[in-house]
Nucleic acid binder design. Sequence first.
DNA 1: GTCTATAGAAGGATAGAC
DNA 2: GTCTATCCTTCTATAGAC
Lengths: 205, 205
Amino acid sequence: MTEKDRMTEERIFDAATEVFVDKGMDGARMQDIADHAGINKALLHYYYRTKDRLFNAVFENIAGKIFSKFAPVLDENLTIEEKIRFFFNEHISFLQRNPRLPLFILNEINRNPSRIRKLIRNIDVGKLWMTLAEQHREELKRYNITEESIPQLMTTIASISVFPFAARGIIQGIFDRMGISFDKYLEERKEYAAEFVIKALKKSA
Amino acid sequence: MTEKDRMTEERIFDAATEVFVDKGMDGARMQDIADHAGINKALLHYYYRTKDRLFNAVFENIAGKIFSKFAPVLDENLTIEEKIRFFFNEHISFLQRNPRLPLFILNEINRNPSRIRKLIRNIDVGKLWMTLAEQHREELKRYNITEESIPQLMTTIASISVFPFAARGIIQGIFDRMGISFDKYLEERKEYAAEFVIKALKKSA
DNA sequence: GTCTATAGAAGGATAGAC
DNA sequence: GTCTATCCTTCTATAGAC
């Protein structure tokens, strides 16, 4: 019956992911998760003992998925401009498929900042930046990118990609009123964002 | 005793703001709010009847404050570039004083999208954009701003300003590890953001 | 208007049968 | 492994004295 166990555990996990992402840790109810999984509340505790453990399992799985999306894109053998285009394409596409993840992650990290340390351990951002700098030493001279501005640049890129999803409620509310399609906006954003950033970085020469 | 009443009500309101912003609607506890206000739990209900009503009062006050910050900046008699600089300066400064508001608002709007409609009614975004377009009809020709790209541009500007605060937990976690000061980063961001956007918009000509 | 005491509901967790 | 029944804590909300 190991196969069946795994299936139940997985069903619970998926249901928990659904509910936690939707309601957050505080708003989620064990009964709700049980209902989604089509099983009894007691079974949740059999597999995961406490709500806290269940939440942590879900959180770490999601966080891992998100952050592992970053590194590969930057490893590719591409020019800076290609990397920027590639990143926005991949990242926004991923978020289109998982639009509620950003707000969930931002929230729960904010509510429990110690979580972040564990995550960062997996990705050495400092080394990542160094590697990037090495790869493009010559190329970089043609752009307005200095050592000190890298934090500004990196967070700006992340902002442009992630924020529309975190603020979806507000943005969609405004767009609806103006007859603008949010889906179309997201589709167009992949290219707009890339060109916007590239234009901002290029030296006028 | 009307003066004393007002004071108590205000103390409750301030305490509620503090706790709700920190913990969110679901995570907040009436007992916690009462403690912060230095009064008894029963008094909360005397003044606001339910947790829900208290929360709504707090939410609408905060949302009003935030959105009313936008319009005046855009009304000023300034060039486009000056407006961009002015906006980032004012907006980031406001968020420096209220760093936890963005995540609170994003969250609660997401959890209850109907809230947004009431807010938008106060600010007719469509008209705002039109007014802006009128004001700068001639000036606009020197920039890469088209009618269709305005949603992209507006959300990009908002992203760059707001996201660092919404993602403060993550960003600060990374910065700490790299010996970067988050406060200094924010201070520098006011200028960096403005120049970044202006550069992206200017026609190479 | 403010307090103490408590009702009443909800939610996390466990015991115990199958 | 899965279920029913139930315990126990927590939390919102109210009753009633002052």
